[in-house]
């Protein structure tokens, strides 16, 4: 019983990326980027609602958001959005049974066929696309 309870790590266990490699990093990055994007969506809906209060209120809001700090937040949002999309498409395809390999006998060192090079490549491509999109976004936003 004590041993069973000691294995319950809760949130700490969920976010620990060291034990399961890149797949676990992708797992919590997908969740963190999702939470970040939801927070941005709520903020964006509030931000755009100020247009109903007239030109003065809209320009006041722009003076808060269209700043170097606001643009850095937008660049991060672009990165989160692209990674979340790329990794999300990988997850959808995997859930459809594509690219996860065939089940086999459990033989030492017990490597799961689903955690294969195709999956890892997709994760790296998602990260690379996010980095490229962030660079492009930074060019547009900060160079404006």
């Amino acid at each position: 019983m004590t041993e069973r309870l000691s294995n319950r790590e809760g949130i700490k266990g969920m976010v620990n990326p060291t034990r399961y490699g890149l797949e676990r990093v992708a797992y919590w990055m997908q969740r963190l980027s999702g939470l970040g994007l939801l927070a941005y969506l709520i903020g964006h809906i509030y931000e755009t609602s100020t247009i109903l209060n007239g030109k003065g209120a809209w320009n006041n809001m722009l003076s808060l958001t269209q700043t170097p700090g606001g643009h850095i937040v937008l660049v991060l949002v672009i990165g989160m959005c692209v990674f979340h999309t790329g990794n999300g498409i990988r997850l959808m395809i995997s859930e459809g049974g594509k690219g996860v390999g065939k089940p086999g006998q459990p033989e030492y060192p017990y490597r799961a066929s689903s955690l294969n090079s195709k999956q890892r490549l997709c994760i790296w491509v998602s990260i690379a696309l996010a980095a490229l999109a962030m660079m492009y976004g930074a060019g547009v936003l900060l160079g404006d």
Partner: peptide, 16 residues
């Protein structure tokens, strides 16, 4: 986005 976002949040909270 509202459906996707809040369902995603629901999934995360149910995992915890």
């Amino acid at each position: 986005l509202s459906v996707h976002g809040f369902n995603g949040l629901r999934v995360i909270l149910l995992e915890l």
